[in-house]
Design a protein around this nucleic acid. Structure first.
Lengths: 138, 138
DNA sequence: GTGGATGCAAACTCTTTGCACCTTG
DNA sequence: CAAGGTGCAAAGAGTTTGCATCCAC
């Protein structure tokens, strides 16, 4: 059965506290705050377990490697900031996309990714404060 | 300057003739019909060149490695078959997605992927012929 | 005390790169 | 003939796995 280890707890907490999808290395760095000796292999093994058990879910964006977020349950999409590369949830959906498929095709599901500037990375405008952290990678 | 080699021609033709986005190995296999000694390294180098020159464009779907298709120019999306994994173009767009982003976020672009059954992989229904090739991977 | 969990390092897969040889213009 | 292109093999980056040790139950 599933044991409650410090590693597993720190990984789950890291994902939960982030409030946005995190990649394996981001999880590692965040979780090392609680468990400094945590290894990347354990992160990979644990996120797979947590994803299989339904506690977290994989977020796969076009051209990006996997990120993970707490399984909230509701259908939603994602927004990736073109400046800081971070990913955020979008709790809205255009809906009714089945009509877009070519004739003879059956639509079962869809994924939508929006790209643009997140709140912190808005380009400077007349007198606007720039709060962008400028983080690259991720 | 750009030379016209048999390899480059076979790669470009393979992508053009496929009518759907192909991955590096798919391109290799298709192009080897014309140039049997073609190497995967050349495929990688060539698609990068062709993509940089704008002749072809990368198609990156969630959780999938890159595919390439002829740069047609018009904005479109993609459909991935959950049975054969192949990817097809969708020449339609829900449009007006900027409103979906959280407040304070600016939307510059979007990507949409539909999932379901392609024409050849439709589940058998009353007396329908099954034409599905059942290709996995790719 | 036992079996699952962890850390390390090696293995794997996918992609890129160095280098000698070949081909196009 | 010169410059760019190609094939092979090795190198990188990201992810998975074998194994001895450790720890939750």
């Amino acid at each position: 059965m599933e044991r409650s280890t410090r590693q597993r707890t720190s990984i789950r907490d890291a994902i939960r506290d982030a409030g946005r999808p995190l990649g394996p290395v981001e999880i590692l760095e965040a979780a090392r705050g609680a468990v400094p000796a945590l290894s990347l292999a354990t992160v990979y093994r644990t996120v797979r377990r947590l994803a299989e058990s339904g506690e977290i879910q994989a977020v796969t964006l076009p051209g990006e490697s996997v990120r993970y977020e707490i399984a909230g349950g509701t259908h939603h999409h994602h927004f990736q900031c073109t400046a800081c590369s971070r990913v955020f949830d979008v709790h809205a959906c255009p809906g009714n996309l089945a009509r877009l498929a070519p004739e003879g095709f059956t639509v079962e599901d869809h994924e939508l990714t929006l790209y643009g500037r997140c709140r912190e990375c808005q380009p400077a405008r007349r007198g606007a404060k720039r709060g962008a952290p400028g983080r690259a990678g991720g």
